[in-house]
């Protein structure tokens, strides 16, 4: 139990410290690397409360895919570090405001400001479902029955966002030479390669 508490404080501390470093580090590449560290520690926190499925999905989706693409883009940007510093104070108030609003929302959902919390009630209800079932199965059962429509509409929202991004960035440039893959694939073998029988210790000239 003591070990678990120690682990919790370690991971929680590193998560918050890494989150802070994301904001204050001078180099955007370092920021993304600290963000990855924060993701990792959040995953470890999930593991501590026994939410192994969520922890693994967090690592796969955020660390394995999203953060790689972040890093990919940030590394290619040519950013002057001093310019970034100037923007910091300008954007600090609005950033802090958003942070406070999000924190207030979480606290409100957990019923800190009094009143019964629907979130806690829902969590208790879900907890009753879980029992001895491993948590991948438990999530599946709730997600595909009780919250089916919400889950599907979340998927539709993502699909719309994806199509939107494609439409916004799609441009047709004239005079582009395209690869005709079908033509390349249907090239007959005798035009593409020559098969030579090489005698052992003979070689080919």
């Amino acid at each position: 139990m003591l070990l678990q508490a120690l682990a919790f404080y370690l991971f929680a501390f590193v998560t918050i410290a890494a989150g802070g470093m994301v904001v204050v580090s001078r180099n955007p590449v370092y920021s993304v690397l600290f963000l990855i560290l924060a993701f990792f520690n959040a995953a470890a926190l999930f593991l501590l409360i026994g939410a192994e499925f969520v922890a693994m999905i967090l690592v796969i989706v955020y660390v394995g895919a999203v953060a790689v693409l972040f890093l990919f883009v940030v590394m290619m940007l040519d950013i002057k570090i001093t310019e970034l510093r100037e923007g910091f104070l300008k954007y600090f108030p609005i950033g802090a405001l958003i942070g406070v609003v999000l924190l207030a929302e979480i606290l409100f959902a957990l019923g800190i400001f009094g009143g019964s919390s629907p979130t806690i009630a829902a969590l208790d209800k879900a907890g009753a479902h879980i029992g001895a079932v491993e948590n991948t199965r438990a999530i599946g059962r709730v997600l595909y029955t009780q919250y089916f429509f919400l889950f599907q509409s979340a998927g539709v929202v993502l699909l719309v966002a994806m199509i939107g991004a494609i439409v916004l960035t799609l441009r047709r440039r004239p005079g582009v030479r395209r690869q005709r893959v079908a033509e390349q694939l249907y090239r007959p073998k005798d035009q593409a390669i020559t098969v030579v029988k090489v005698p052992t210790r003979g070689g080919v000239s």
């Binding site: 192994e52 499925f53 693994m56 999905i57 690592v59 796969i60 394995g64 491993e134 948590n135 991948t136």
Partner: peptide, 10 residues
């Protein structure tokens, strides 16, 4: 672990 394959994938 229960989520072994996810761990490997991650």
């Amino acid at each position: 672990i229960n989520v072994g394959i996810l761990y490997l994938f991650a």
